[in-house]
Design a binder for these strands. Structure first.
Lengths: 143, 143
DNA sequence: GTACTTGCAAATAATTTGCAAATAT
DNA sequence: ATATTTGCAAATTATTTGCAAGTAC
């Protein structure tokens, strides 16, 4: 298991979850993924490591990881059930519309915007969600 | 048909779509909705106006409206298949986590942020997607 | 009149659940 | 040892499609 997957595994055991062969395989897939993966894709790739794994387990594990904040759902109009690894802290995703790879970035400073919206609308803002779409360096030059 | 629904209807016919009883009913539901609605909810409400409407038609009509940009999908972790009316121009949605109502706001100025991310990552940013969550004035005081 | 639109029922796809067997700690 | 986790198959839910009949223009 490579370094990044080990970190993710620690998050699981720190919360009292057992580290099974299946979960390790799923974590390895996610850690090594460049982009966002849906449950079926995770399942396919995890089978390389752990042939007996079931799709149900993938669903259950992704739920746990999403709840822990280890992974985050990536939303876009074509489908909203893909996940990408998430770092600690509030980060946002930048998704390549060419190859689907996902990069995290520091969320700039939105506080001025949030305050403006709050006073404009009377809402108490609790959370925000920003996602950017574009072409990564490779896809930008390539096609 | 009230004013707002009439405007939406014009968008449909301007694109060569016929204005059927069913489509009018769906538009009326959307125009008068305070929040986001999923296909099943639209269907239930549209039946008041047009009892013979089928769920299939709701799906098909929502697809058309989303393609035209008349409505926009509202994404959040609990479900990503709800829609809210969208104004022309680039606006963002503010969703109340209490009652589910949706308000649009002018998207502040994100250009500095976008440029920073672009130069940081090498991506060519094509689109962005911002959604805020909070409590609307009523839900804020109420509970 | 004609092409677009509809509702139905059936097909497909996606996700969840119950449960006995397996396993990490 | 034991509570958690698993895989399977079945159940459920959501969405899409084919097609003959209906309807807006």
């Amino acid at each position: 298991m490579e370094a990044s997957a080990k970190k993710l595994a620690e998050q699981l055991s720190a919360h009292g979850y057992k580290l099974t062969r299946q979960r390790r395989a799923i974590l390895a897939v996610i850690a090594s993924s460049e982009g966002h993966l849906n449950p079926a894709e995770v399942y396919e790739r995890a089978k390389a490591d752990c042939p007996q794994i079931g799709l149900t387990t993938v669903y259950r594990t992704l739920d746990i990881l999403a709840k822990l904040g280890t992974i985050k759902r990536v939303h876009f109009d074509g489908g909203c059930h893909s996940y990408a690894p998430a770092s600690r802290g509030h980060r946002h995703h930048l998704v390549c519309t060419g190859c689907g790879c996902v990069v995290e970035f520091e969320g700039g400073d939105l506080s001025a915007l949030l305050e403006a919206v709050a006073s404009q609308t009377g809402f108490k803002i609790e959370d925000h969600w920003l996602q950017l779409f574009g072409k990564c360096p490779a896809c930008r030059d390539g096609s």
